[in-house]
């Protein structure tokens, strides 16, 4: 490819990037650097002075049983959400590939939850499963299950996982459909001629070829479960009952805005930052590959 053709102007490009750069510096880099600084400071109880404590805040945070609990909660929540949302979406996408009639209708109905705010998704599910007025909760009790997500931590977790995965099914569905459509039909026909039964064809041909999509979605779903589900937790359980659903992001918010422990909250922010950087790096390794191979 020949070198990029460009315009010779000298000043114009700076004016063009200025708005984005200004916003980025003021609302991204400055606060991020403040979070870094703050994470190494400790304020006295009256907030009058602060002193530099190096990594003491990190040590404190990482040895706090509540924080360790939060890590565990986040891990369980993320894995469960990703597994449920991706498994359901893959099944539906494979089925949608099989049918010819009504494909468009299915897709249209399938993408609704994408437009629903996570917090509202949480509230809808809570409405369905609210122990006193939820119709489905009524159904569960009728089945003999002692259902009360407001008191039982595991049930609360199940409820937020359900709401979070429900919201994410649309997104995963669209990507799996795109991934399935990208697999050459001739490969599947060749496998059929080679005598592979449909189920075998799926696991030996389709699923491996879908691996890049699956991997990509795994990263995206993890990021989603980490960050975008704050609304669900905040609206549905408030981290409870008894910190059973307190994820890392919720804890940062809670310690910073509700409990006002600035140093700890900042240290938690920095830890989160490291996690996002790792996830983004993984995601971009994937993007690079995709660019190279097709």
């Amino acid at each position: 490819m020949s070198p990029r053709v460009v315009f010779p102007n000298k000043i114009l490009p700076y004016l063009l990037v200025a708005p984005q750069l200004a916003i980025t510096l003021i609302f991204f880099y400055w606060p991020a650097s403040q979070a870094l600084r703050q994470s190494m400071l400790r304020e006295d109880p009256f907030g009058l002075s602060s002193k530099f404590v190096w990594f003491a805040n990190f040590k404190k945070v990482l040895s706090d049983p509540n924080y360790l609990n939060s890590i565990q909660v986040t891990a369980v929540f993320s894995i469960a959400t990703a597994a449920v949302a991706m498994g359901t979406a893959l099944l539906l996408a494979v089925m949608a590939e099989k049918v010819i009639r009504g494909r468009g209708v299915y897709r249209t109905l399938m993408i609704w939850p994408y437009a629903v705010a996570p917090a509202i998704a949480g509230m809808l599910w809570l409405f369905l499963f609210n122990p006193s007025i939820g119709s489905l909760a009524y159904g569960l009790r009728w089945l003999g299950i002692n259902w009360d997500p407001l008191l039982d931590g595991e049930q609360a977790m199940a409820l937020v996982v359900a709401a979070a995965s429900w919201k994410q099914i649309s997104y995963n569905f669209l990507f799996f459909v795109a991934g399935l459509q990208a697999i050459p039909k001739t490969l599947i026909e060749a496998a059929a001629i080679d005598g592979a039964k449909p189920t075998k064809r799926f696991w030996t041909i389709v699923f491996p070829l879908l691996a890049p999509t699956t991997f990509f979605l795994l990263v995206v779903n993890t990021v989603y479960a980490f960050f975008d589900t704050f609304g669900i937790i905040h609206a549905v359980t408030g981290g409870g009952p008894g910190k059973a659903t307190e994820t890392l992001v919720y804890k940062v918010y809670n310690d910073g805005f509700v409990n006002l422990i600035l140093g700890d909250s900042a240290a938690q922010s920095v830890i989160l930052m490291v996690i996002v950087i790792a996830l983004t790096a993984i995601q971009f390794r994937y993007v690079e590959k995709k660019v190279h191979y097709g």
């Binding site: 991204f28 606060p31 991020a32 979070a35 805005f257 900042a266 922010s269 920095v270 930052m273």
Partner: peptide, 16 residues
């Protein structure tokens, strides 16, 4: 900035 979602810089951004 991809790596700096609001969630990881809540307090200082609020201060800004």
């Amino acid at each position: 900035t991809l790596m700096l979602p609001v969630e990881v810089r809540i307090l200082p951004t609020y201060k800004v």
